[in-house]
Design a protein around this nucleic acid. Structure first.
Length: 552
RNA sequence: GUCCCUAUAGCUCAAUGGAUAGAGUGUGGGCCUCCGAAGCCCAAGAUGCAGGUUCGAUUCCUGUUGGGGACACCA
C-alpha cells in the first residue's frame, strides 16, 4: 500500500475556489502514475456534494489497491492541509468517490468574487501555449444561399470562438470563399447565368430575376467571368446575411482566387516537389498520400482526361495551399476547421499532407458537424441545390427567430445528427428552452428594478444559507470550470446545458424564497445573490450569442 | 464493396469508464390575496440484439441488425 506524499498548498485569503481545486488535483496527480488523470467534477446529484473526485478509484486501480483505503489517505492529506473552514464536509462514498462540501463561507466568498469581477468572471488571461489560433467555419460556397445545414457550423464556430477568447486564447475567425475563376463550380455557375446550362436552376429565381441590371451585365460576359462576378454577388449577399441577420462578425474573409493571384498555388506545388512528395502518372501530378497512411494517392494537378482542364489544380491543391498559407505564411500556431459532414472523407488527405509538411497533428484540428435532417410533418425533405428546393437559414430565422434557432442548434453536440421538423419549427419555437433561460434573466432584472438602485448595501452574505440559496451559489461557481473545460474539449453544448441548469436553480429559488419582503439584512444578501445570477447568465448568453431581453 | 457518423422515455436530445441513466416536449394531476405562471411541484415512461474487457460499460472492443453520409482529375 502506498502513502501520499507532497503538501497541499493553502492559498491566502480571500479563498480562490479555482486555486483550491487545482491544488487538490495537483496533490493527487503527484501520487498517481503517469497517464492517469484524476477528475474533479460537479456531481449531478446534490447528495454527492459540491464537488467530487474519482481520484482514489483511479489511483487504486493503478496500484491494485483498495479504493476505499486510498480515498481515506487522500482525505487525510487534504483535511490536514486545506485552509480552515474551507470545506463543510469531506465524505468517502463507495466504491471510492471522495465528495466535498464547501462551507457556506466558501460559497459566499465565491459570490463576492462574482460581484467584483462581473463580466470578467470565468474568463482567463493566462497565456496559453497553443495560442494564436485560426478558426475557420461556415465557408459556404458562393454558388447559393446559406442553408439550414450551414447553420450548425455558423453558430457553433461563432460560439466556440467566443469561448476560446474568453478562456484566454488568442483567436482569429475566418471565412474561406471558394471563388476561384478556374474552379469547375464557378464556371458552371457562369454557364447557368448566361443560359448555357442549368446546373444551378435556382439562380434565376433567387438572384437574376430580382436583379435585371445584374442579369444584363452578366449576359455580356464570357461564362467564366460571369461565374466569377455572380459568385462575388452571391457572396456579398451571404456576407450581409451573416453579419446583419446572424450577427456573426468575422475577422477576415479569405478569397480562394487570391491564392492564384499571389502564386501561392505554384509555391505550394514547388514545396511539395522539393520534399519529393509528388510523382507524375497518366499525365497528372499526384501526392504520395499512401506513404502517410491514406488509402490511395491523390491528384494535385489534372491531366488532359477532361477536355480543357489539363494542368488545372484540383481542389485538394488549392485547399492545401490555403492551409500552407495559414501555417507557414501567416504563422498561426494552430488551425481549427469546422466542416460539414459531407466533407468528412476529404479530411484525412489534408491532414496527411500537412503532416508530411511537418505540421504537428494536434495543431490542425478538423471538427465535423453532423447533418441536420429536415422533415416536414414527419416526412423527410431532401435538400438539393441542384433541384432548387433549398431550405434557407434565412427563412428559418424569419419564422422562429434568431435566439430560438441559435439555441436549438447549439444545444446539440456537433457530432450528433439532429432532426428538424420545419412544419413544427414555429410551433416548437414557442416552447424553445431559450425562453426558459431568458425568463430567468428577466426575473433577475425585475427584482433588481423593483428593489431600486443604490438604496441597498451588498448585504451580509453569510445569511444565505437555505437549501435554495446555497444550491444557487453552487451552480454559479461551476461557471469558470465549465469555460475551462469547453475551451479544451470544444463541447459547446455543455454551456447550453449549464445555462438551463443555472436557470432551473434560479427558478427554484424564485419560487421558494423571497427577496422583496424578507427582512432587510436577508433582502440585501439575496439581492446580491440575484445580481450574481444576472452576471453569470449574462456572461453565458453573450458567449452563446443569445440576446438578453429586459422584458418578454 | 470500403470507410465515417449514429442507435437512450411516445417525440427531440443529455450523460470526459462511475454513484438511483438526466432534461425538454407530450400525457395525467396539483400551485397565483405573495418579487412576472414564458414559472414551480407530483405521477407514469428508456440504453436495438449477442458476446468480451473492468471493481464498475449508455460510454471501450468484437460480431450483428437498422438509420444517415462519403467514396471524382466537383467543391
Amino acid at each position: 500500500m502506498q502513502s501520499l506524499s507532497g503538501n497541499f498548498i493553502a492559498p491566502l485569503n480571500p479563498y480562490k475556489l479555482s486555486m483550491i481545486l487545482q491544488n487538490i488535483i495537483d496533490l493527487i496527480k503527484k501520487n498517481v502514475n503517469r497517464g492517469i488523470e484524476p477528475e474533479i467534477f460537479a456531481p449531478e446529484q446534490e447528495k454527492f456534494g459540491h464537488y467530487s473526485t474519482n481520484a482514489a478509484l483511479k489511483l487504486a486501480k493503478a496500484a491494485r489497491g483498495n479504493p476505499m483505503i486510498t480515498a481515506g489517505e487522500i482525505v487525510d492529506k487534504i483535511s490536514e492541509t486545506a485552509p480552515r473552514g474551507f470545506f463543510e464536509k469531506i465524505e468517502i462514498a463507495p466504491p471510492g468517490f471522495i465528495n466535498f462540501w464547501l462551507s457556506p463561507k466558501t460559497l459566499q466568498n465565491e459570490l463576492k468574487i462574482i460581484l467584483k469581477q462581473k463580466q470578467k468572471y470565468g474568463s482567463s488571461n493566462i497565456k496559453h501555449l497553443t495560442s494564436n489560433i485560426l478558426l475557420e467555419f461556415l465557408s459556404a460556397n458562393p454558388t447559393g444561399p446559406i442553408h439550414i445545414g450551414n447553420g450548425r457550423g455558423a453558430f457553433f464556430g461563432n460560439a466556440l470562438a467566443n469561448i476560446l477568447k474568453f478562456a484566454g486564447y488568442k483567436v482569429k475567425t475566418e471565412y474561406y470563399v471558394n471563388n476561384a475563376r478556374i474552379s469547375e463550380q464557378i464556371k458552371n455557375l457562369g454557364k447557368t447565368a448566361v443560359g448555357e446550362s442549368s446546373d444551378y436552376p435556382y439562380v434565376q429565381s433567387f438572384y437574376l430575376n430580382k436583379n435585371q441590371k445584374l442579369k444584363k451585365q452578366l449576359s455580356k460576359l464570357s461564362s467564366g467571368e460571369a461565374g466569377y462576378e455572380l459568385a462575388n454577388h452571391i457572396q456579398k449577399l451571404n456576407r450581409h446575411f451573416i453579419e446583419k441577420k446572424l450577427q456573426i462578425k468575422y475577422d477576415a474573409f479569405f478569397n480562394e482566387e487570391s491564392l492564384f493571384k499571389s502564386k501561392e498555388i505554384e509555391s505550394a506545388l514547388k514545396l511539395l516537389k522539393n520534399k519529393k512528395l509528388t510523382y507524375e502518372k497518366d499525365g497528372a501530378l499526384w501526392f504520395k498520400a499512401q506513404n502517410f497512411g491514406d488509402s490511395e494517392d491523390r491528384v494535385l494537378v489534372r491531366s488532359a482526361r477532361e477536355a480543357g482542364r489539363a494542368g488545372a489544380p484540383t481542389y485538394f491543391l488549392t485547399d492545401l495551399a490555403y492551409h500552407i498559407n495559414k501555417f507557414f505564411k501567416r504563422k498561426f500556431g494552430k488551425a481549427i476547421d469546422i466542416w460539414g459532414a459531407d466533407h468528412h472523407g476529404y479530411a484525412p488527405r489534408l491532414k496527411f499532407a500537412l503532416k508530411a509538411l511537418g505540421v504537428k497533428e494536434e495543431l490542425f484540428e478538423i471538427i465535423i458537424t453532423q447533418f441536420v435532417r429536415l422533415s416536414a410533418g414527419g416526412k423527410e425533405v431532401k435538400m438539393s441545390k441542384r433541384k432548387g428546393d433549398i431550405e434557407t437559414l434565412e427563412k428559418l430565422i424569419d419564422e422562429v427567430g434568431l435566439d430560438a434557432a441559435r439555441f436549438f442548434f447549439l444545444a446539440h453536440s456537433a457530432g450528433s445528427h439532429i432532426d428538424f421538423d420545419i412544419k413544427f419549427a414555429k410551433e416548437r419555437s414557442l416552447k424553445n428552452p431559450v425562453y426558459y433561460v431568458q425568463y430567468a434573466y428577466v426575473r433577475c432584472g425585475s427584482i433588481i428594478r423593483k428593489m431600486g438602485n443604490g438604496k441597498w448595501k451588498t448585504g451580509n452574505l453569510y445569511l444565505l444559507k437555505t437549501r435554495e440559496d446555497l444550491n444557487l451559489i453552487r451552480q454559479l461557481i461551476c461557471f469558470p470550470k465549465m469555460i475551462e473545460d469547453i475551451a479544451k474539449n470544444y463541447q459547446v453544448h455543455n454551456l447550453v446545458r449549464y445555462a438551463l441548469e443555472l436557470s432551473r436553480a434560479f427558478h427554484n429559488f424564485y419560487e421558494k424564497e423571497r427577496v422583496i419582503g424578507a427582512s432587510q439584512d436577508l433582502a440585501e444578501a439575496r439581492l446580491a445573490l440575484v445580481k450574481g445570477v444576472q452576471i453569470v447568465l449574462k456572461n453565458t448568453l453573450e458567449l452563446l450569442g443569445i440576446s438578453l431581453p429586459k422584458r418578454m
